[in-house]
Design a protein around this nucleic acid. Structure first.
Length: 240
DNA sequence: ACCCAGGGTCATA
DNA sequence: TATGACCATGGG
């Protein structure tokens, strides 16, 4: 913009501006209430669950976690003591069991090498994130699940639900990569006090999952969505 | 008989 | 850097 060319009226004169992220959060919170995430009994269980849930429904992950618990294997040392086939068999219901067995092993090796939770919890956010991404089988979403839900770091977790939901709302394009989408969410919520971000991100991601499962599905149920009037998809839906 | 699910890695162009 | 193939079970 050239010098002197000052925007006079920044507010577009339209009534269908996409809602701000904090408004989205408020609507979801009203619709679904508190979510109690992450569904796990310990930080280590969160980390294992984050790997097992890759491209997999949570109900299948629960069976795998139950299998590990039944064998006393919700523990990095115990997992590393198992033969590949034994571990794969325990987590079979989670799908991709050969792949995920190797990923659990590589994660547990790294976890113990670094000194476990007490040591890792002293690391700065960025260092911990980069280290997690260096573990074979841990990509951006799995790393951020672990950062937010196991280490309580202020990271906005992005997943397929988030991308679908935000793009339908017209907030971002449908093919936006992980990192840009995460930055979008975090900068949009930058006004939130630092000491409230972990709690907000925690609840926000859980609510997006609830929304993605029940309302903003592959075939959207706009009739049941509190945001439909502020969403391009909802507005184009035939009234009913 | 499909489609989908709380991704990530690897080979190829 | 950008697609495509691959991994696999269980529910709707």
């Amino acid at each position: 913009m050239k010098g002197g060319d000052v925007p006079v009226d920044v507010q577009p004169l339209v009534d269908n501006m996409p809602p701000g992220l904090h408004d989205v959060f408020a609507v979801l919170k009203t619709a679904f209430g508190p979510q109690h995430w992450w569904p796990a009994d310990s930080a280590f269980e969160v980390m294992i669950g984050a790997i097992l849930t890759q491209n997999t429904s949570w109900s299948n992950v629960e069976r795998a976690v139950t299998g590990l618990r039944a064998h006393g294997c919700l523990d990095p040392t115990r997992i590393l003591s198992l033969e590949h086939d034994a571990l794969a068999e325990m987590i079979r219901p989670a799908g991709y069991f050969n792949v995920k067995a190797r990923r659990l092993v590589s994660f547990c090796q790294w976890y113990l090498e670094q000194g476990g939770y007490s040591e890792l919890s002293t690391w700065l956010d960025e260092r911990l994130r980069e280290a997690l991404l260096g573990v074979h089988g841990v990509g951006p979403e799995t790393a951020d699940d672990i950062l937010l839900y196991a280490f309580e770091r202020p990271v906005f977790v992005v997943d397929a639900y988030t991308r679908r939901f935000f793009s339908r709302l017209g907030l971002v394009t449908g093919n936006i990569p992980y990192e840009p989408l995460r930055r979008f969410a975090e900068t949009s919520l930058a006004f939130v006090p630092a000491d409230e971000r972990v709690g907000l991100y925690n609840e926000f991601h859980a609510l997006i999952v609830a929304q993605g499962k029940s309302i903003c599905r592959p075939k959207p149920r706009c009739g049941a969505c509190g945001l439909s009037q502020r969403c391009p998809v909802g507005r184009s839906e035939p009234a009913r």
